[in-house]
Design a protein around this nucleic acid. Structure first.
Lengths: 347, 347
DNA sequence: GCAGAAAGCCAAATCGTTTTAAATTTTCGA
DNA sequence: TCGAAAATTTAAAACGATTTGGCTTTCTGC
């Protein structure tokens, strides 16, 4: 059913019908109501592609998915979907072309110029992220999920990674731990840097020497969690506590600790960052895992919301949100064992 | 840069340019080459929405994402993305509206009639799935990832869930296990039914009585894995082996077994289904986990491929693919302990 | 050298909306 | 009752491509 045909059935012109449905004020309330009702009854729905052509809007938000299907991805998307449910806006997932920075820029520029999306969400930015400058230059609205140090003005939503890890590390120090290992995310990404900073600040505040041999970077996989944790535990003196970057990493750490005949929560303390997944919960781990917690799904919901605001004209420079992160203490953290305790300078 | 303008610069008509770029035969090779080169040089790219309007194609494949962001989702998507990389086709992720079957149908029908997508992929179908009849009725091409018993002809891609679980269960029986518990996926979904059938057939073949108290259904979460496994282990006599529906389920089972002071691979055998995730690998679990393995990413790649075939005219009735599933034996499966052994009828 | 076929190119119609500018009708104060 | 202002409605022009059908050239075989 086309607009023309539908309008004829109503005895109105296409113009009036279009206006009635789009909520323009120049149409009488009586007519609008009739049009709306008939549209439902006759099942008229405007052709999306025609609308898009004439309005120049794409009706979609673009998300670029990394090559290595991160497990977090679907949770965030799920949140976005929840928010966009009521709007007439789709989520366009774009395949990432090749590995390496060059192609990623090219991909974003193609996405931005293709007219397929009205806005783009950038994930896991780096401090100097060329994607940000690129999208800005192309005039494509975008939201950064995470943070960047670029001086290009842009909208962003991030969690307080630094504060989270600082508090987590501080808490471990309070428990008497002095050798605290850190298994962080991929090197070079802003959130990894922030977490590193949080870790170092906590140590600094308590006068503990930073030891680069206790820090590792990499993808959030159980495998890396295991390998890094094992290599740390082989050191002498070994660390008595771990800060793990993700739930998957924590799984690997738990296994590594066990493989040394040690017990998590007694011999070795562990805190991990938890994005709150329905399928893997910190509470159910044995022992239950202390976490820095922030709902990724909630971030997805809010991201979608902010992008909508951006599209309706709110200036990008106004949109900066930094979410606090909870620290949830459970059984995986405990006082440093006596045998491992290192006397304080004062002690 | 518009087509008209671009054509003028080349001294050609829009018609010829359009044809040259779309690979129609009515244009000389020399001209085609020149047009292609100039398009790159001048950065001309056809307006997507105009193309879509006139061709009636949407240039996107729709995927409906469940409310509870399954962790598998991104891996499958990632595979699709890999395949669609070279094509000019997007993946459109549609928020699922509300819970409950009614709204899901409505959602699919809106998606199908909205003109936003050229084809749809349906996940986790049920034997009588109304979505299939609906899309068929609406004339929207679709691929079912999984299987259904509906008599509506349709394209599908599935893995041999029944065979996989049958072999897994048979193997456990070969090892002497007689009380084998099964933690399956959500009740009512076809793949859960197939797995149930595989499980029952294996028992039947060896004359082992099916015990409904050893089977559970639910989402693939560590929590359910743990809870179900614990409740099974409280039975007397307790099961000596588990078949787990997913890696997350297996994590829960491992923990439950340990919480009883038992050892996986010695006291209790475990086999789980593994979709092959980069972030959680069966090989790295302790003990390493025996699995029925099938790459979900590969399924995503192939799904995209099949949808493309569907769109280029291959009849849906021709597209039926059933993938075999590997059985990988690792340390989590072993002979039934002597104390638990139940003498065979013959023994 | 010529007719007919094939190759290469083009003008104009089309896809289904929104929106501009103009026309019509209604309202209302004097 | 009239005329201006306000409220509705409309015809027609975009939006930017593809595609139909026709129009020129260039080959081909005799």
């Amino acid at each position: 059913m086309k607009l023309k045909e539908f309008a004829k059935q109503l005895g109105l012109s296409p113009t009036t019908v279009s206006r009635a449905l789009s909520g323009y004020p120049e149409v009488s309330e009586k007519t609008r109501k009739r049009v709306a009702e008939e549209a439902v009854r006759l099942g008229y729905r405007p052709n999306v592609n025609a609308v898009r052509l004439v309005t120049g809007r794409a009706g979609a938000i673009g998300v670029v998915m990394g090559r290595n299907g991160e497990f977090q991805f679907s949770e965030y998307m799920s949140g976005m979907a929840e928010r966009l449910d009521s709007e007439d806006i789709d989520i366009l997932v774009t395949p990432i072309a090749e590995q390496g920075g060059k192609d990623e820029s090219q991909l974003h520029s193609r996405l931005a110029t293709s007219g397929r999306v009205d806005a783009v969400i950038i994930h896991s930015p780096m401090p100097k992220d060329e994607r940000i400058a690129l999208l800005h230059r192309l005039g494509m609205p975008f939201l950064v999920h995470g943070r960047s140090e670029t001086d290009v003005p842009h909208a962003w939503l991030d969690i307080d990674n630094e504060g989270a890890i600082r508090r987590a590390t501080s808490h471990l120090i309070d428990l008497g731990h002095r050798r605290i290992a850190m298994i962080n995310g991929r090197a070079g990404l802003t959130f990894s840097l922030h977490r590193d900073q949080g870790y170092r600040k906590a140590l600094e505040q308590r006068g503990i020497q930073f030891d680069p041999r206790l820090v590792a970077h990499g993808h959030f996989t159980d495998e890396l969690g295991f390998r890094f944790a094992r290599s740390f535990l082989e050191q002498s003196p070994r660390p008595t506590a771990f800060v793990a970057g993700s739930m998957m990493t924590a799984l690997g750490v738990y296994r590594a600790v066990r493989s040394f005949g040690l017990v998590v929560g007694r011999d070795i303390s562990v805190i991990a960052h938890d994005d709150v997944f329905p399928y893997l919960t910190a509470d159910n781990m044995v022992p239950s895992l202390s976490t820095t917690r922030s709902s990724l799904r909630a971030a997805g919901v809010r991201s979608a919301d902010l992008v909508l605001q951006l599209l309706s004209g709110r200036p990008a420079t106004e949109i900066h949100e930094l979410w606090p992160v909870e620290l949830i203490l459970r059984e995986s953290t405990g006082p440093v064992p006596h045998s491992d305790a290192i006397p304080d300078k004062a002690g």
